[in-house]
Design a protein around this nucleic acid. Structure first.
Lengths: 110, 110
DNA sequence: ACAATATGCAACCTAATGGTTGCATATAGC
DNA sequence: GCTATATGCAACCATTAGGTTGCATATTGT
């Protein structure tokens, strides 16, 4: 569900992780876990939340694990928000049209 | 912070509320609280979370309370995601340019 | 083989979340 | 004024989240 993606994004530490990944600062669990204001295990848990929401993917390479961001999931989240905005705009348009139809004075000059 | 907005959107019931508001189904606390699969008080709590994230606003009118969606906050959330995507695209472009510069064979035909 | 590095797994704790119920209060309509 | 409606407020409860610590394990480099 969409909610899970937003929920995963609903935490400062996790947004920081996504931001780091998007801008290319570090791409292993270890490097990403630095300077997050929490232990490595704490950071690992946050990464797991992002994995569960399919916002990132983990791939083991030797003894380290590469982390890659899933841009597609971000795009879907953005599309969902855009759809809400679209519905709202449509509703406003419909309301405006209705008002102009029932109250002709509103479409004439003031 | 941005995280709070995403966090507020990270729940099915709250997404339903936002969707109803955007599409114009109901605009009072009472009407919005119907068919959410929880009690009125439960729904009220979820609405309060959206208020705290400034995704909606409440205005008392007589004995009922009007609920309006704050499209601006949705736009900001969307802009934040778009920015992440932009950074990622830039990173990819930079990487591509770097590879092409250091390894000229990659820009020639195969 | 051994030490260092990168990570995983699990138990544990506290605070926050999501939901309930019960009761109080203000407005509307007859 | 009385009744119904729309809402608020607070206590309570179970589950989840966010974070810690301790220990196990797999690679890597010498």
């Amino acid at each position: 569900m969409q909610a899970q993606v937003f929920k995963a994004m609903g935490d400062p530490a996790r947004l920081t992780l996504l931001s780091r990944l998007a801008s290319g600062e570090g791409h292993t669990i270890g490097s990403l876990s630095e300077n997050l204001g929490m232990s490595r295990q704490g950071a690992r848990k946050q990464l797991q939340v992002l994995v569960a929401a399919e916002l990132i993917e983990l791939h083991k390479v030797g003894r380290e694990t590469e982390v890659t961001i899933n841009i597609g999931q971000l795009q879907q989240a953005r599309a969902f928000i855009r759809e809400l905005e679209r519905q709202w705009d449509q509703r406003l348009s419909a309301l405006k049209a209705f008002v102009e139809q029932t109250d002709p004075s509103s479409e004439a000059d003031g």
